[in-house]
Design a protein around this nucleic acid. Structure first.
Lengths: 235, 235
DNA sequence: GTGACGTAAAAGTCATACTTAAAAATGCGC
DNA sequence: GCGCATTTTTAAGTATGACTTTTACGTCAC
């Protein structure tokens, strides 16, 4: 996930404080925030608070109504595909749930993307794919998890992009976040599953020769593995 | 798609003017919008413009930099999952492309959702599913496309919700938009494909008895049909 | 109790003054 | 003429006070 950090400007600072708090459930649905209260709390002007509120509103995290105030909306109404919302939830107490739902999404999307990639990938993309698969092999043993992760995320990002579907392509950050989260939460000592590494190599090959069926099936195996892995860890 | 229309407030009015224009490609990437110029154009105060800009910025449609202005970002950077962005693009010249990419997304997600629904659907949801499948049968003949559409969208929305995955559930609006768009663009005279109607009935049944494999396979058939249908129409 | 009405509270809007960052122009030494 | 530091300038960012609009809520008459 792109680290926008505190962003620039005061409104971003307010946003980076309220956003995580709301998505963490610190303000139950229906909670009312008053503008002038926030003004004092953050010691900034109305302008700044209002702009932050507008952004939260566009994420459907809050709704602003006259004579009432800014009310926190229930989680079911949030724009859960907003990269920032995803980032905040991954950083908060809802992390396990979020990681799980994203992995399920990934399981649905990535096989389809791989199938399309087999048809549409450019020679360059095929080459990069093979390259990163090789990189994964090279770094799959001996505590090189960070280097491995770089190749892994790059690999999946390329598959999603090569699918030629813009909606798939924009999930690259999400997948990267899941993979990163997985690695850093996992037993950082265990080397990656050799079977998974092999699968990646095979996917790269299937995409290269344009075998959509095979690329899809192999990718499905990868995601099934990811789901299984999550089941072992999760509560 | 939820018709937020012009929303309330002046900033929403500005947004509903700039958003569609940008997503329609009327301002090529890199185009610079100056705040005071917009102020005059819309005859509103700085506050209003700034709030609208903040929202566009949160959608990654524009980036605001000091001493430069508000620059329009390239389409690859847009938050294409934002419901409003989807709505704007569906209403603009990019409609065919958008409809296509959403249908592909749907093809990936819905079968998986149906599989999960077979495991997690509540009795109530099963009942509703059957009810709407019946409704589709009842309205599938004799120019009742509007009534049919109501059942169709409800059906798919329930499947997505019943999957128990929040990310899937939030695609309900998207699927509804695609179905609606399909119906209203299509030959509004042709009755729905009887095979598709039957498939919906069978999906409802599979979900009811908890046959995940079958629910997934049948839903895949539905989405394959939707893709094929699109291929016939599209340029 | 119900309905009309008035009040007040909070968001929304506007205008203006001021601050800050950074692009661009300027000037200086070499 | 070229490179680098310095100043200038521009447009966004912030702060503030005055005013408008919507609307929840309490009041009063019936």
């Amino acid at each position: 996930m792109e680290n926008e950090g505190a962003g620039q400007g005061l409104h971003a600072r307010v946003l980076e404080s309220l956003g995580p708090a709301i998505t963490a459930g610190e303000y139950p649905p229906g909670t009312i925030l008053r503008t002038d209260e926030l003004e004092q709390r953050f010691d900034v002007s109305r302008t700044v608070i209002r702009e932050a509120i507008r952004v939260l509103e566009s994420m459907h995290l809050v709704a602003s109504r006259r004579r009432v105030g800014v009310t926190v909306r229930p989680a079911e109404e949030w724009n859960v595909y907003d990269p920032r919302v995803i980032g905040w939830r991954l950083a908060g107490p809802d992390r396990p749930r979020q990681l799980r739902s994203l992995t399920v999404l990934r399981s649905a999307v990535e096989p389809a993307a791989a199938g399309l990639a087999a048809r549409h990938a450019t020679p360059t993309q095929c080459a990069e794919l093979t390259e990163h698969a090789m990189g994964m092999v090279a770094t799959s043993r001996g505590q090189q998890l960070d280097a491995y992760l770089v190749h892994d995320t790059a690999f999946h990002r390329i598959v999603l992009t090569a699918s030629g579907n813009e909606m798939f392509a924009r999930l690259g950050d999400v997948v990267a976040a899941v993979l990163t989260g997985r690695t850093h939460h996992h037993v950082m000592f265990t080397d990656p599953d050799p079977a998974a590494v092999t699968l990646h190599v095979q996917v790269a090959e299937a995409v290269r020769i344009g075998d959509a069926e095979r690329a899809e099936a192999l990718t499905r195996e990868i995601t099934v593995g990811a789901m299984a892995e999550l089941d072992v860890l999760a509560p």
